[in-house]
Amino acid sequence: MFHATIYNAAKPALQANVKQLYLTHISARYTKEVQRLMLERQAQTIFPASKVVGDFDVFDI
């Protein structure tokens, strides 16, 4: 099974008119903060309310 890409996550969020997209379970290839910010910026070009978060982070919705 393959992981979703940033596009695979952000495009449906945009189409579904959701308020916030939290991207989690990021590949181990992206361990540095600068790499995670790059992914977040890529997602935000499609869906501005995107944020890369950590596994097991908790948010009120």
Rank of each mutant, 00 (worst) to 15 (best):
M1K: 12
F2R: 10
F2H: 05
H3Y: 15
H3M: 10
A4C: 10
A4E: 06
A4S: 13
A4R: 09
A4V: 04
T5Q: 06
T5F: 05
I6H: 05
I6A: 06
Y7T: 14
Y7M: 03
Y7S: 12
N8S: 10
N8E: 15
N8Q: 14
N8V: 08
A9T: 12
A10F: 03
K11W: 05
K11D: 08
K11G: 00
P12W: 08
P12A: 09
P12S: 10
A13Y: 02
L14R: 14
L14V: 06
L14C: 09
L14E: 10
Q15P: 08
Q15K: 08
Q15W: 05
N17D: 09
N17P: 08
N17Y: 12
V18R: 07
K19W: 01
K19G: 07
Q20C: 03
Q20A: 02
Q20Y: 07
L23Q: 00
T24P: 02
T24F: 15
H25L: 06
H25N: 12
H25W: 14
H25Y: 15
I26K: 04
I26R: 06
I26M: 07
S27M: 05
S27I: 01
A28D: 14
A28W: 07
R29K: 10
R29F: 05
Y30L: 01
Y30I: 02
T31A: 14
T31Q: 09
T31Y: 07
T31P: 00
K32D: 15
K32V: 14
K32N: 15
E33C: 05
E33S: 07
E33V: 08
V34L: 07
V34S: 11
V34H: 10
V34T: 04
Q35K: 14
Q35G: 11
Q35V: 10
Q35H: 12
Q35L: 08
Q35N: 12
L37V: 06
L37D: 11
L37G: 02
M38G: 14
M38F: 14
L39K: 12
L39H: 06
E40Y: 02
E40M: 13
R41T: 11
R41P: 01
Q42T: 09
Q42P: 07
T45G: 02
I46G: 07
F47N: 00
F47T: 01
P48W: 01
P48H: 03
P48G: 01
A49I: 12
A49S: 12
S50L: 09
K51L: 00
K51P: 03
K51A: 05
K51C: 00
V52G: 01
V52Y: 00
V52M: 01
V53Y: 08
V53S: 03
V53P: 04
G54I: 05
G54V: 11
G54P: 06
D55R: 02
D55E: 05
D55F: 06
D55C: 10
F56A: 15
F56E: 15
F56C: 11
F56H: 15
D57I: 06
F59E: 11
D60T: 00
